[in-house]
Nucleic acid binder design. Structure first.
Lengths: 113, 113
DNA sequence: CCAACGCGTAACACATCAGTTACGCTTCTG
DNA sequence: CAGAAGCGTAACTGATGTGTTACGCGTTGG
């Protein structure tokens, strides 16, 4: 998961994933859609490969890349795990803040009382 | 989204998010659970704040952090968008590979034919 | 066959990031 | 009140990441 999360941190790589979501592409086709150099794109593609987010297949001189969505799905599942915890959190904070204030007021009354 | 994706790229920050999923924590409590220095953790907390993934509330000397899950949910939704495209992709690659092979064979037959 | 094409990688340079110690401000406590 | 506690930030350092040009290997096409 660390590599996947790291891979999608970069906007270029996210764009590549979006392109591949719409269909497989050769490396050159991908690189042609960016203004950065082809080796730079190649380097990003390598990160995606090593993170398991894309697979590549050599067809002649071309290297065709395809999306491998499973790790993204897994990350999404991990992320949705935070959604369920939201209500618990809000309630806990309100309770904590109120308790802290009550304690402080009580202490002040003891001091001045 | 760029900031959110960037924020979860770091394992320390992911751990912080997991801690906060289970309940609000003061900065000191969070820092105490790591072996790195407190300023290092503070820096990570700042990244999370600025990405909108946590909110903080000063209670006396303490700064209590709480999870803000909405941006994570949004990122999860974006990621699940890739799942739906998977079937299309596999079919397209098979088709493309078969077509390329057919074309190559056809060309070879023309040459030798 | 040979030149062009496609593309990955190495080497380099610069930017960014994440660790550290030092510092200082605010709040709390004895 | 004075010292301690809590915590953010600055400055520094070293590691990492991302851009570039140069290079070379394999495939293709004339």
């Amino acid at each position: 998961m660390d590599e996947v999360a790291g891979a999608i941190a970069d906007p270029v790589r996210r764009r590549i994933l979006l392109m591949l979501r719409d269909g497989d592409l050769a490396a050159g086709d991908i690189a042609g859609r960016f203004e950065i150099s082809r080796p730079a794109v190649s380097r990003h593609l390598r990160v995606l490969r090593e993170a398991g987010l894309v697979s590549d297949q050599v067809i002649g001189r071309q290297r065709v890349y395809r999306l491998v969505p499973a790790p993204l799905t897994e990350l999404a599942r991990w992320l949705t795990g935070f959604e369920r915890a939201a209500g618990v959190n809000l309630a806990a904070l309100d309770t904590e803040v109120r308790r802290a204030r009550r304690d402080r007021l009580a202490r002040r009354e003891e001091d001045t009382g």
